[in-house]
Amino acid sequence: MDQISLPVLTNDDSHKKLKVENRRKNIFVTQSGELGEQNTEQMKHIPVITECSSRVLETGVNTLQATLLLKKQVDMNDAHRTLLDKRHQFKGVMQILQQRRADLQHRQLETKQRAAKFEKFVEENEMKRRRALKKFLQEKHQNECKEKEKAELSTQLEQLQARRLYLQERVKKYTIFEEFLLKVLQILPDNYQGYGTDLVTPIIRRHETLSTSRQELLKQSTSLTEELKTNQHHLDALKQQHTTYKLMSNQKLTELQTQLDEIKEKKKQQEMKLQRSVGQSRDQVEEMGNIFMAVRNLGEQCYLNHYGPLDVMDTMTMMDMIKEFIMEKADLEKRAMRLTDTSSGTPVKQTSSKIPMKSSSKGSSRTTLKIPQREK
């Protein structure tokens, strides 16, 4: 936007100058009141302007429109200059923000790359951890198997050592018998029947047979003992089960007894309610019978031919017939009253006849009509 220069005021433009009237006198009070009154004529009067220059230009009488236009133009130039400064500041701020955004995007990209590398590193570490854990489990399983084998071999070694000690003791024990047999062989004569034959072997065979029989008997005794223990455990389990079943049966029996008592109590209450309802139903039946008899009697007295025979007529139809008969009687009474009032010259008064009878709808099974019983 082009800047507009302000025109220069010369001495010739006397009509454009600001004229201010002497509206107020400024008096500097430095003396007493008497001296002030005497020297009033010698004092100079200074004009005082209390309004701003723009206001004076706008409200002045002698101010021209051109001066006001120039003033507005100056204000507009200042506003335009301020606007340009604000625009430059805004552009600078936007550039800074764009630079920050670019830096932030670059940092986000670097962060994503670092996160991807870290995830890859974590996955590799997880795979290494799984392989190490798998290897550890395999080695642990192998060590457990080796420990089991070691324990079994140690047990077998202890058993073999115990067996060796046992055999050594038996050899020491039976050495006496061997020496005795050798001495017997030496003492025997040369013409002995069994001389020259092996006498130790049959004895050893007999001993082996007896030893085998003993072991079989021991095994049989052990099996019988185990079977006895098993049967004893089974018997204890059966006893425990029987005790539990007995307790459960007693508890269930107690609950059933309680339910039976409750059912008996409910039965008594139901019987009492039934007796009450039977007594009420009898009263209701008797009342309904009386009502039906009263309706029948009224039907006989209020019979209308267009309703058909009275014997085959139901109660609701009979009540409608009675209602219609009473309505006709009431209408006839009203007409007679009107004729009487007309002939006598008295004004006609409206009389309302109340019908003390209520007929229930056909869907209801009980009527509210109450008629006193006839005396027998």
Rank of each mutant, 00 (worst) to 15 (best):
T254P: 02
S364Y: 04
G33C: 07
I204F: 08
T212A: 15
D331Y: 09
S221H: 04
S223P: 01
K334E: 15
E179S: 00
I27L: 15
A102S: 11
V285D: 14
R338C: 09
G60Y: 03
K334H: 14
Q301R: 08
A66T: 03
T67P: 06
I49L: 13
I322Q: 04
T50N: 12
Q113Y: 11
L228I: 03
M94Q: 15
T258V: 08
E300Y: 10
S281C: 00
R296D: 15
S211T: 12
K358W: 03
T40R: 12
L210E: 15
L256N: 10
L217D: 15
R163S: 15
L298A: 08
R276S: 09
V8W: 06
K140F: 10
M318Y: 01
D283F: 04
K239N: 01
M316R: 05
K16V: 12
T368R: 06
S343P: 04
L97M: 06
L69Y: 07
P47A: 11
M313C: 05
Q251T: 10
L182F: 00
L182K: 03
D78R: 06
L18M: 14
K173C: 08
T258A: 11
N191Q: 06
H207F: 14
L165G: 03
R335G: 09
T212K: 14
Q159K: 13
M313V: 02
H106F: 14
H233F: 03
V348R: 13
V295Q: 03
Q269R: 10
E126R: 03
A294N: 02
R100F: 11
M76H: 01
P202N: 13
I204A: 12
L199P: 05
P202I: 06
H233G: 00
S352Y: 12
F136H: 11
Q159Y: 11
G194Q: 05
Q138A: 10
N62G: 09
D261I: 04
M43I: 11
N125K: 09
K362T: 04
T40H: 14
L35F: 09
